[in-house]
Design a protein around this nucleic acid. Structure first.
Lengths: 349, 349
DNA sequence: CTGTTAGCGCGTTCAT
DNA sequence: ATGAACGCGCTAACAG
């Protein structure tokens, strides 16, 4: 029924091994016979059997990419960058890798399950993006799983994620703490003192690090963070909207809101507008990530730009052994403070 | 080195066949022996070899999703919806499918190459999203390729894409024409007569259909489309920005701009603001798709909502045979006009 | 440079 | 309900 390598070999009057060599292009083959083989391939419309090939060669051309939410450009940009670098379709043969993008939805269980699935596929590499859940149980399970993967020869990259010690995983970590620090420094320098903070989901590294930066900036001004002015929520618009209303309720004298990311910040802006407050005249707003839409917000969003594309591309190259891993297997990637129209000096009262 | 099914069998003191049966859960196995097997699996940390399994069973648990740009939420939302429905990680065994998201970048060649790669992996299903390139050569190549795939037992879904006749592919098509029609009708009803149109890339079905709707609405008012007021460009902010400036140059009396999609519309808004024009007082702006950020634009964007999530989810279910295909294998999905603040009556001059 | 020979690890008959 | 044996389609030695 379906055409196999043997069929091609028969038609080209060569051995199956020769066909395999032509297709993989790893061994020398006479130009004439190669031509015959390729012609036979075309004539028969032959398509290599991936699973069989992977089984025999004990390798695979699959690369896994784990993301929290594929619909969020934060992850889409990184995933896209990884994919362009792992050697997507280009020339006729070889080196063509398929990216398996796995949506964990932020669930630790699904994260582990997907890793098992990728291990099952004998993936060539796995790139984990976004923050990690910090529960001890999950950390332990992840450590074991990543160990198993690297031992099996799968290259493991952590992109925008803290290192996982003793696993052989290579980490390109975002400096969320530093970014959060500079952002709040900026607000403090403008004169803000009563700053609301809409944090991300609890028990996640990204949330904690950004918040730590915020606290560090406050501490440098001898200010303590008011626990009443810190709310947690998911990375969506709704969270920013609701949290902002709640913050205003708790402290109507608020002059600035720092959001977990740009999407949340957009929700915050909407809530402020609905309350009749002007940005930044009445309340300043800051985001994080600098997603593409942030510069088109009105006013444009002050935020911390993360080099998502660059980091993803680098992760992809390292995964494919086309670039050396950073010394010690760990690199910290800095964010850049982007001051735009959504932040200004606090109103005088 | 690596643990195989035989190792598990030995430890559980059963035959490899029994282990296989336990793992796949398709044949009756005594509860006691099943327990022994599962214990052995855990103790040995056994992970099934996907390629070997796929080779022997001649099936795969991979599902391909083709998108133009994974960083664009338009595609991210659909891809995420497909993925939730194809049976991601859930219970212990079986039914766990991996979504292979392939970024074509809008290139016909890469689209075909990815399809070959997926065919090579013997993918269980393939979902193609977004518009199609309309060149005769590509249509012919696609027809052949999709035929080949469906013949090989791969379920092919077109999500937000026109049908490809004679291929067995199931199509859930967006009514881009109707959406474009209603959008321009809305502007005409407001009194606009000089409307600029920033179309998507040329030679694509989505671009053509939305434009056709625009023209149909104009024709219904006995208006002809001014070719000078239609510009083509990619689906990005920059295109909207540049095209808007060019449109204003060609016709400073313009009262409305219709954009290929919301992202382009955001660029258009930015250009208008930079020119000192108010929205919608001086110029109305309309987008398409209703991506999440569109309601947070200032003013909120008038646009056509496409049920991206719903359509993706349905495509996923049909792909997995969990829902019947539409009659004739073709369904048209309507968009909904969302009138918001970015459109209003034209200025009086 | 090319053909021959063995598996890769698993699913699936066929027996029992 | 379980075991034995074969083959899925391909790659990787090893000859020649």
């Amino acid at each position: 029924m379906t055409v196999t390598l043997a069929d091609v070999a028969a038609r080209a009057r060569v051995s199956p091994a020769t066909v395999s060599r032509v297709l993989n292009g790893n061994y020398p083959v006479a130009a004439a016979t190669r031509e015959r083989v390729l012609r036979a391939v075309d004539e028969l419309d032959y398509v290599l059997n991936g699973p069989a090939s992977a089984l025999a060669a004990a390798t695979s051309d699959l690369v896994g990419i784990l993301v929290n939410d594929i619909a969020d450009p934060f992850f889409g940009i990184m995933a896209g960058a990884v994919q362009t670098e792992i050697g997507g379709p280009g020339g006729r043969a070889g080196g063509e890798r398929l990216a398996v993008v796995c949506n964990t939805g932020g669930s630790p269980e699904r994260e582990l399950t997907y890793l098992t699935l990728l291990q099952r596929q004998r993936a060539a590499a796995v790139v984990l993006t976004g923050g990690a859940v910090e529960s001890p149980a999950h950390i332990e399970a992840m450590t074991a799983k990543l160990q198993r993967l690297t031992e099996a020869g799968t290259r493991v990259l952590l992109c925008g994620r803290p290192p996982v010690p003793d696993t052989g995983a290579i980490a390109l970590t975002f400096d969320n703490r530093g970014g959060g620090l500079r952002l709040t420094q900026h607000l403090l320098a403008l004169g803000h003192r009563r700053i609301g903070y809409i944090a991300g989901p609890e028990e996640r590294t990204t949330t904690r690090h950004r918040l730590e930066g915020h606290h560090a900036a406050l501490a440098a001004h001898d200010l303590a963070a008011d626990p009443q002015l810190t709310l947690h929520g998911p990375y969506d618009r709704r969270s920013g909207y609701d949290a902002t209303l709640e913050l205003l309720r708790r402290d109507p004298g608020l002059t600035a809101v720092v959001a977990a990311n740009d999407t949340v910040a957009l929700g915050a802006c909407a809530a402020l507008r609905d309350r009749g407050l002007r940005i930044p005249d009445d309340v300043s707003v800051a985001g994080f990530d600098d997603l593409p839409f942030s510069m088109d917000a009105v006013p444009a969003l002050t935020t911390v730009r993360l080099p998502l594309h660059t980091a993803g591309a680098r992760a992809g190259r390292i995964a494919m052994h086309r670039e050396d891993p950073p010394p010690g297997g760990i690199a910290t990637v800095q964010g850049e403070l982007m001051v735009r129209g959504s932040t200004g000096v606090p109103r005088v009262r």
